[in-house]
Simulated assay, not measured.
Amino acid sequence: MLKKMKDFTRELSFKTSRSSGAGGQNVNKVETSVTVMWPVSETKMFSAEDIELIKDKLRNRINAEGVLQLTVSESRTQLQNKKIAVQKLLELVNRSLVRQKPRKATKPSKRQIEKRIQAKKQISEKKEQRKFRF
């Protein structure tokens, strides 16, 4: 069941920091890494059922305060990293809202069961013929 993506960007807050790793002077002085934070429990965009589903599926990414965080430092600019972070967070949350269809239990047909038993008998006969007899 596909749902339309919800845009909850007004509820997001951002924190910037210096990116780690190689990059020379730019990395040492410019805060290009962006952390986007979203308080899951305080959202007004989703129903209580949806919030529980989000909390369940993203429980490893939500901290003790109930805030979903995502840090991005892919680009050299803060603005680009902010766009990437928002897009990734929106996709992550909207993907977590997809419910799997329940599996319908099936059983093999009579023909399949008969075919499997016949194959077992053939193998058994083949092995029986291999036995060394006096």
Rank of each mutant, 00 (worst) to 15 (best):
M1W: 02
M1N: 02
L2Y: 06
K3W: 08
K4P: 02
M5P: 02
K6L: 12
D7H: 01
F8M: 00
F8D: 01
T9V: 07
R10H: 10
S13M: 10
R18I: 06
R18W: 05
G21T: 14
G24L: 05
N26S: 07
V27R: 11
V34G: 00
E42G: 13
E42Q: 15
T43Y: 11
M45H: 13
S47F: 12
A48W: 01
I54N: 08
I62H: 04
A64T: 12
V67E: 08
V67D: 04
Q69M: 14
S73G: 07
S73D: 11
T77R: 09
Q78K: 14
L79R: 03
I84H: 00
K88F: 02
N94M: 03
L97H: 10
L97T: 09
L97Q: 06
R99P: 04
R99L: 13
Q100G: 04
R103D: 08
R103N: 09
K104D: 08
P108Q: 11
K110G: 15
R111N: 10
Q112F: 11
Q112P: 05
R116A: 13
Q118F: 05
Q118I: 06
A119C: 01
A119M: 09
K120H: 06
E125P: 01
K127L: 15
Q129W: 14
R133T: 14
F134D: 13
